[in-house]
Write a protein that binds this DNA or RNA. Structure first.
Lengths: 213, 213
DNA sequence: TATCTTATGATAGTTACTGTCAATTTATAT
DNA sequence: ATATAAATTGACAGTAACTATCATAAGATA
């Protein structure tokens, strides 16, 4: 369970060159998207700007969206999660992991991430692609938690838990999209601790509250 | 808040015809997708089978995915939700709404829905489109709950709640996709009540459990 | 019936993506 | 160094999902 592309990766000259073109393509893509907009930019332009043939580009990124979406943060968080002590409950463990990963990211890259997030949330195709990845994360979280609790993913309770966590993350993304001043990590932390407390809001009825105005 | 296409809709001969072509296109599309597969079917074929020009088809459904995704259940659930008594907490209210709507659907349509769900979960593009809709539902639920509790959607707690609910629904979809024998409504009910109890699983640590083998 | 509005259809693009095959580059063995 | 095998790249020719435009047909209204 949970193999997830963690091959040792033997590094040859070939691999290095590949990583370089990969990065180059993504950079050029993001630059052009930023300058002219996503739809106004054709992948042909990206290929030209990178001085790489169209065929090759598609060998690296099978879709236009992939140029933006592919991300290394998720794997890092997963890696952290697996290192967390077992006497933390799953949510605590996740909070620690997210914090650890974001702390390790330098300011410049954070800016870039923010730009990228803005782009994603403004282009429907990218949002869709991003949601697919979110859905994959759901399954990954389910696997991780199942492992931790010595249970199986084949279990609605586990899946529900993973789904709620993932959904909470989606909520944070939405929140941050409309509140540019909000701190992403802090919001995640807030949302997750809310979840940890059992979503007190879920138990509230309208009657228990005074009308607010 | 929450306007959401609930116009009275004055029905003329024109409207009727439109609804009919709309339905026809969807039916033909689903039939062809079922017979030959999603990718193997071109929208041109769908247009021909429906004896409707390509231009017109695109006026009804702006994307190939829309032919499958567009759905009237969500609006129905929302409508139900708004009718639920205020002394139910949001999750209870949602559970009742889902139950009410599914009870009102006849067996034949349930079969069709099941087919459709299977199709969606097996085609990446459709999954993506479906997730986008799920994301919209998140916002809708947030709005509904905010209304109920006299609060605003501009509120991380509300969004987190809506996100968790939505995520739980996603989990149920995943679960049912791999457990064809599972009852969809029952699973939703189970997931939501789990959420209502505050996700007890979220508080568990590995140590509290005996190793399962 | 006349007229005005709205829905439809034909046609010609554009662009993301696929498949194939030859040319080039890199790794490996002698 | 050189030959050979393997992997990477590029050129080219498709396909299919859309978009834009504009003339025609059908439905509503007076």
């Amino acid at each position: 369970m949970l193999s997830e592309h963690s091959e040792p990766v033997k590094i040859g000259l070939r691999e290095k060159k590949k990583q370089k073109t990969r990065l180059l393509l993504q950079q050029q893509a993001l630059r052009l998207f930023h300058e002219q907009g996503y739809h106004a930019t054709t992948i042909e332009q990206i290929a030209e700007a990178s001085e790489i043939s169209l065929s090759t580009l598609f060998r690296y990124f099978s879709t236009k969206e992939a140029l933006v979406i592919e991300d290394e943060l998720d794997p890092m968080i997963i890696h952290e999660f697996q290192k967390q002590p077992l006497d933390l409950n799953p949510i605590q463990a996740l909070r620690m992991s997210v914090k650890a990963v974001f702390d390790s990211v330098d300011q410049e890259r954070k800016e870039a991430l923010r730009e990228r997030t803005k782009l994603i949330s403004s282009v429907p195709e990218l949002r869709a692609a991003s949601l697919i990845q979110t859905n994959k994360s759901l399954l990954l979280i389910a696997n991780l938690v199942a492992d931790r609790l010595h249970r199986t993913v084949d279990d609605l309770e586990i899946l529900t838990f993973a789904g709620s966590v993932t959904g909470a993350m989606m909520a944070v993304q939405l929140y941050c999209a409309s509140h540019p001043e909000a701190n992403f990590v802090a919001s995640i932390d807030e949302a997750l601790s809310d979840l940890e407390l059992g979503l007190p809001l879920a138990k509230q009825t309208s009657n228990q509250l005074p009308k607010s105005e």
